[in-house]
């Protein structure tokens, strides 16, 4: 628990909202029901899968509940951490941009593609990420309805 937010940076491509919308296979609003941490089938990585209850399929069509997987977690005394891998809390309300990767549904663009809904606003977190385009990371924060409208406007083009 003490190391839950330990960091090492991951270098990623910068994804603005337009990039996120275009690159995502699915965009959903939903709520985190529970999670499980396990060793990958090859026994080398600790992964954590979250069950997401979908409230709104904004892009694509995911089932009412689906598994979203991230790298990292703690099993016994051993913890794996890859910076920029989003983590979720049980009951957390989210808007999330996803894509398939190595047989799992994952968050697009690391933490860039995970937005927490709180007090009517969505926000993401880019603190663990390094950007190779000469500019520092910038988190997004705006009212949730404005956010959804912007996504739908981009999708309708």
């Amino acid at each position: 628990m003490a190391t839950a937010t330990l960091l090492k940076a991951t270098t990623v491509q910068r994804l603005g909202l337009e990039d996120l919308v275009k690159k995502a296979h699915h965009i959903v609003a939903g709520k985190v029901r529970n999670s499980k941490t396990f060793w990958s089938p090859n026994g080398k990585l600790i992964l954590t899968s979250y069950t997401i209850d979908v409230a709104d399929n904004i892009k694509g069509q995911l089932p009412r509940a689906f598994e979203l997987t991230t790298i990292g977690g703690k099993i016994g005394d051993l913890e794996l951490h890859v910076a920029g891998m989003p983590s979720f809390a049980k009951g957390e309300e989210i808007v999330v941009f996803t894509e398939p990767s190595a047989g799992y549904e994952v968050v697009l663009g690391a933490t860039q593609g995970k937005f927490t809904v709180e007090n009517g606003e969505v926000s993401n977190d880019v603190g663990d990420l390094s950007f190779p385009d000469g500019r520092p990371g910038r988190a997004l924060k705006l009212p949730v309805q404005t956010f959804k409208n912007q996504i739908r406007t981009i999708l309708s083009r």
Binding site: K8, N42, K44, L45, E79, H81, A102
Partner: peptide, 20 residues
């Protein structure tokens, strides 16, 4: 590596195991 579900936008990542 194509075994780790890092996603398409990651350029490089460090995977660190640690313990107390």
């Amino acid at each position: 590596d194509n075994s780790a579900p890092l996603g398409s936008s990651t350029i490089a990542a460090t995977f660190s195991f640690f313990r107390t």
